[in-house]
Design a protein around this nucleic acid. Structure first.
Length: 266
DNA sequence: TCCTATGTTGTATG
DNA sequence: ACATACAACATAGG
């Protein structure tokens, strides 16, 4: 489900538990979400204190102290985090439940495309320290974008924007929103953009990321109808800019929505 | 019953 | 080695 801003939103559902100590850990070790686990959650986290909440694109990291450890969470397609009062009876798809004195911190994910990772020790694990620059950081600049578009020259832009190695946090709806605002057809080969369109794409990408963080980031706000967001989900939607019917088709392996008038195929 | 779903990874192919 | 395309993963809901 979640992209950049939704990930931030869900990560901070656990905020009230900062400073609290984990008294009990419940999990189903055989669930797919634990496929790359490198240490046992109960042994590693019990008695340890939640110190910090961090997010990076679609990745989350919860820092625990005394002893030090790193809990990674990826929500996949259907994952969520919630914080509920105790006592709490775990639901069918609650794969990890951390209990403190007052709260249950719950990771739930019916489809199990999400993932839980865990690393014990003071040094950050590679799965956290090796992430690419965030889209909203200064290190993500125009030359960075240009170089990547050149390397992925023949792939459709829609597929390229979904690559987390360069665009951490961008998902299906954000990619469509970016291309729609930029007026670029999603099937356009990444290497074929003029310098002027590359500049437009860069600015639009930053804008969509920052708008998403403002609207969804801390509370859950629904994006306004002036975005493509509210019109792209099902057949029959209308473009809020042109008033014409939106088109939907699979591009880059994902359902893609665009406005033919604004985003002409070249 | 059939289709879809805000994601990533492994594998095949060029 | 690199880039691209696609099946596979598992479940719920329309």
């Amino acid at each position: 489900m979640p992209e950049l801003a939704e990930v931030y939103y869900y990560a901070h559902r656990w905020e009230p538990a900062i400073g609290e100590t984990i008294t009990k850990v419940r999990h189903h070790p055989r669930a797919r979400v634990f496929r790359r686990l490198e240490s046992d959650p109960a042994e590693t986290l019990t008695g340890s204190r939640l110190a910090r909440i961090l997010t990076h694109g679609k990745q989350m990291c919860f820092r625990f102290a005394q002893p030090d450890s790193w809990l990674g969470v990826h929500l996949g397609m259907s994952g969520k985090l919630t914080l509920v009062p105790l006592p709490y009876a775990p639901d069918k798809h609650d794969h990890l439940v951390l209990e403190t004195g007052g709260h249950a911190l719950v990771f739930t994910d019916p489809r199990m495309f999400g993932e839980i990772r865990l690393h014990a020790g003071a040094e950050p694990p590679a799965w956290w320290s090796g992430l690419p620059p965030e889209c909203l950081s200064a290190a993500f600049d125009q030359p960075t974008l240009d170089a990547f578009l050149k390397r992925r020259a023949k792939a459709p832009l829609k597929a390229v924007l979904l690559m987390q190695e360069r665009f951490p946090g961008i998902g299906n709806w954000m990619a469509d929103e970016i291309l729609w605002r930029a007026g670029i057809h999603p099937a356009t080969p990444a290497g074929s953009l003029t310098p002027s369109l590359r500049s437009t794409l860069f600015q639009t990408l930053k804008e969509v990321c920052s708008d998403a963080m403002c609207v969804i980031g801390s509370d859950w706000g629904t994006p306004p109808d002036s975005w493509l967001f509210n019109h792209r989900w099902q057949d029959g939607g209308m473009c809020p800019k042109t008033g014409a019917r939106l088109q939907r088709e699979e591009i880059g392996g994902r359902t893609t929505c665009w406005s033919p008038k604004r985003q002409p195929r070249r």
